[in-house]
Design a binder for these strands. Structure first.
Lengths: 236, 236
DNA sequence: CGTTAAGTTGAAGTGAATCAAGTACCGTGG
DNA sequence: CCACGGTACTTGATTCACTTCAACTTAACG
């Protein structure tokens, strides 16, 4: 084997293991997964799979972000989540064989690994231990879907929905002296699509929060000044 | 063993196997599951577990129906689904150990089997084949949650939401010469809680559908006259 | 047969969508 | 360096679907 292969292999391992899924995998399972899968680069906005399609491949995000959403005929859209490195968008459908319930689309240029569905199912049969990872991933997906149902279906109004989304983002963010700070990579329109509100409502609600000193923003940087108050506000 | 035990045991097998979960289970796994679980009767409205609780037991509906819902402080409610015999409400949380995202409440008097969470997890380790059933159940829950997200979060208005719910109910209903007919066991209020609409809106929209000859109802019996048109209406 | 829960219908109020008309921002190329 | 075009954001005015409130009818059930 040429030297470059080793380097590449290490690189691949790291990419795969960015998420939880492959963490607990035995070495030989990991190697086999890599052997069976192929890597590909997806351009920004390129679609990995679409809702209503039958799942033909399993995908692993190695690098970049993938937007999972549901789309309606009239152009309305509901963003479910942004999947990052190590995640397996569409796992549910690949397992069940039912058509995809969501559309996956590269947000930025992405590195993606993928494998034929049948190969993955056979791989699963050879390594039943992987089921534990599968179950964890599925249950996480379900939990997230429930959280979003709570936001979209149970919140009494748009400000509460937005507050809930912001608090979710806080969890992955970085604490400073003046509050929790993070970059808002989504546009107002996309935020609206996460919570079922219009772009304008997002703008208005954000500036309302600013006026009430719950948060501050300059450009795409958002600072949650008073997370406690925001949280009590978001309570459903 | 007394004779009644045999009879009881047969009865129990049938109850467990009403759903998909236990269908594929090896005989000894089934027997062990029964030995470790206890049966209980729940009165109408009695709560099996509540959201935010930590999961301590796994539940199996043997007979009756269990309402799964999310509840907000101010009395608003979102009904996720009605679980019937053979289903395992709360499975996700039992597996992940995270707090319950939903509340489970007996609709009518119910027969329920339950088992200590720890016992179930150990049972799973002894019978990894059960993971296949677990994965199927989880993916089904996820799919359903997605469907509801589509209804609640993506439908443009209440009539479309209601039409989608009715079509869902049609799937489990019985075809006649004049259309699909089934009993609507939910009250208008509960229907509203399924789709995120008020009781009055449900009443009004149903009578609107009736006027447009999409459906008919007498008492709690509902007849979908024109399923095709209702479906095209519900398209999101 | 009376009491309670569910369904119905009308009227008024409201939160958020939509429409409209801007401004700020950013990368590109002259 | 600045004009340009495109995208995102902002803000106000209008509209509308649905909620809420209220009064009433009908059905369910011990």
């Amino acid at each position: 084997m040429p030297h470059t292969y080793q380097a590449d292999r290490t690189d691949r391992c790291q990419s795969y293991q960015a998420g939880e899924f492959f963490k607990a995998l035995p070495r030989e399972a990991m190697a086999e997964f890599e052997a069976l899968s192929k890597r590909q680069t997806y351009a920004s906005r390129e679609v990995l799979f679409e809702e209503k399609q039958n799942p033909s491949r399993i995908f692993v995000v190695l690098d970049g972000q993938v937007k999972l959403s549901m789309n309606s005929i009239d152009g309305r859209r509901l963003i479910l989540r942004i999947a990052g490195p190590g995640e397996l968008p569409g796992l549910t459908s690949v397992l069940s064989g039912r058509e995809h319930e969501v559309t996956a689309e590269a947000l930025h240029p992405c590195k993606i690994a993928s494998m034929r569905r049948q190969d993955f199912l056979e791989f699963l049969l050879r390594y039943p231990a992987v089921y534990a990872s599968v179950a964890r991933d599925l249950s996480q997906d379900y939990t997230r879907a429930c959280e979003q149902l709570r936001t979209v279906g149970l919140a009494p109004n748009a400000p509460v929905k937005l507050a809930r989304l912001l608090l979710e983002l806080c969890a992955a963010a970085h604490q400073t002296d003046h509050g929790v700070q993070f970059r808002l990579t989504l546009t107002h329109g996309e935020i609206g699509e996460c919570i079922g509100a219009s772009r304008e409502t997002v703008t208005r609600t954000l500036s309302d929060f600013k006026n009430r000193h719950l948060l501050d923003f300059h450009g795409s940087t958002l600072m949650i000044r008073n997370q406690m108050e925001l949280a009590s506000y978001a309570e459903v």
